[in-house]
Design a binder for these strands. Structure first.
Lengths: 352, 352
DNA sequence: CCGATTTATGCTCTCATTGAGCATAATAGG
DNA sequence: CCTATTATGCTCAATGAGAGCATAAATCGG
């Protein structure tokens, strides 16, 4: 186990600011309790019909305060080195993983108190800007124990490609029912019932693949039912089905998956996860992997053709059985053409 | 003019962190050049068919470095006082404006270098988390010169309710054409042509109300054509049509408008801008004000009815001329029911 | 009081999109 | 040759969105 580094003290000079027009606060200074700013990356690739994210294994696996297990690549944002957050993130990813990232998008900024255990003692606050990054899968060459993990290992209820996920029937539904029953009055109970129904498509509403974050937050909330008060909020995350992750990293994963699924429908992001040439079937498999549901093959291709998203290369791929498929490439032109050029994201279909 | 407050020095103790799993950076400390964190609020209301944002008039209007003119409400994020960014923002808005904000959503985190002029001297970096907040219009009671401004005063090319905006024909189109011609080779020229066409719907693509940020960034980029090199990047913002704003505040406005327009279509946000009871016509006017385009009245109402977004109160409103309209209220139930319950956002229609 | 104007509201028609299924073609493997 | 597997073309029905017609109920200016 690594030696704990010494507590570091450093001084900071901040200019008071009379030019910034914050009335009523004009002569106040910038905040006294300074916040440390970090970057967190959700780096995504898809191989063999499995969506994967890049994870870092912690040295101290079972500390019990959320620091154990896998964690997302993270690093400080150094304003002296980087002119923008984006460039800071690209540098961070390059250093930690050696990956060539093809697409980068800011997701959300997290700064909740106690999201990092060391904050409690230190007094400073850790604010972290989360990013989504897409890449073709490739070996990682970074320093440290970095590796690809199945995304659905952390959010198993999100994968409907092989039918109704088992964990919904077993741990999730009973927990939700207990949570519903634990409501004070009938009105509140009805409200909880509706919320659960919508999130998990239990009755009225159909399953909406995009509502990943809502589902995660509902599960996080309900996992506390019947547990010890709220002394260790990380115990909620640990009680969820699926593999645990450090701190609030699973929440970030959920944010990323929801955003990616939503954007798939109107932006041609998939192609940043694919090699330059691919069969239509492979493209479909990648979309299915990300959206977590099966697609109707003919309709999928019809949408591709209608949007002119792809163009044939003329070459054929003949490995494996079945009729050989033509190889296609992405038509870069559509990046600048259609306002909304995405691949189909239909409602859930029954398993084949 | 307010006296410039003295430079403040303060010390900060940060715990080094051996538990946080950033491999290869494990024994590094948190960033040395600490970033100051602020919150910026885009507070929106709609009156008399005009979308308005809350603005703060600067004390030093014409400094020439971007500090002059209007600015968005801004304040430091104090991690000692606030457990979350959201609560910090609500407090900030309450203090500076006295408004009762009904909806709050994080937009984006801005940290580009030189976005704030005082950074250059001070050495610290200002990172600001921008928020969108919706409210019913009401008098502001905050300390300082806070007032409502027409949103389209800052982004005049976004309002198509009264036909093709004049500023597109006069300053914008010629500037774009010059920018296209200034491209090095034919391929690049074609690319620029396409980009401009898509953003402003010049030829092939229709006008997409949601692409507010893309348009702003294109204008910001092209406004530099034919100007002095790039010593003062704020000159680009000043050269744009529409009223200027401090720093990168117009970019934040564009981000907010795009996000709001996009979400209107699948989330019932409008009702946070309306009183408890309203006529369907008023509701339509508010949606038109935000989307910047006219809607087909019958189809608009059909969508409302189909989604069961509203319910009649039985009361009638009879002021002004014309047949009195029935008053409706928002059906709160749909907040939890339909996955996508928004109001119609059709493609652009010719002016009436 | 009348007619012009303004707003509310109901209904229809058409076209594009999309979910779903049928049918056929081309390959590998036994 | 027969079967499994994948590719690909085509049709059909339901839905939703854009556009327009028609009618009802009020105000306003004579």
């Amino acid at each position: 186990m690594a030696a704990r580094p010494p507590v570091v003290e450093f001084a900071l000079t901040v200019n008071g600011n009379d030019a910034y027009p914050a009335p009523g606060a004009r002569n106040e200074q910038l905040p006294r309790a300074v916040t440390a700013v970090g970057l967190t990356a959700v780096i995504v690739a898809v191989t063999d019909e499995t969506p994967r994210i890049l994870s870092v294994r912690s040295v101290t696996p079972e500390r019990g305060d959320g620091a154990g297990g896998d964690a997302l690549p993270f690093g400080p944002f150094d304003p002296e080195q980087h002119r923008t957050l984006d460039s800071g993130l690209r540098r961070l990813v390059a250093e930690q993983t050696g990956l060539d990232v093809r697409y980068v998008e800011q997701l959300y900024t997290f700064a909740d108190k106690d999201r990092h255990p060391d904050e409690r003692a230190g007094g400073s606050r850790l604010l972290s800007v989360a990013y989504l990054a897409l890449t073709r899968e490739q070996p990682v060459s970074g320093s440290g124990d970095v590796h690809w993990c199945d995304w659905y290992g952390f959010l198993p209820w999100e994968d409907w490609r092989f039918g109704h996920p088992a964990c919904i029937d077993d741990p999730i539904r009973p927990t939700l029912l207990r949570w519903i029953d634990a409501a004070d009055d009938a009105g509140k109970r009805r409200g909880r019932e509706e919320r659960a129904g919508i999130c998990f498509g239990l009755d009225l509403a159909p399953w909406d693949p995009v509502r990943v974050l809502e589902r995660y937050e509902l599960l996080y909330e309900t996992a506390l039912v019947g547990e010890a008060p709220r002394n260790r909020s990380n115990s909620a995350a640990a009680a969820l089905p699926g593999a645990a992750m450090a701190f609030d990293n699973r929440r970030i994963l959920a944010t990323a998956l929801g955003r990616l699924r939503g954007k798939l429908a109107y932006r041609p992001l998939v192609f940043d996860l694919l090699p330059g040439e691919f069969t239509l079937f492979r493209l479909q498999r990648v979309v299915e992997a990300l959206s977590g549901q099966r697609l109707h093959k003919q309709n999928f291709r019809r949408t591709l053709a209608a949007n002119a998203l792809i163009e044939p290369t003329g070459r054929m791929q003949s490995e494996g059985r079945g009729r050989p498929a033509e190889l296609f490439r992405f038509r870069r032109a559509v990046l600048r053409a259609k306002p909304t050029a995405g691949v189909a994201m239909p409602t859930l279909r029954p398993a084949p």
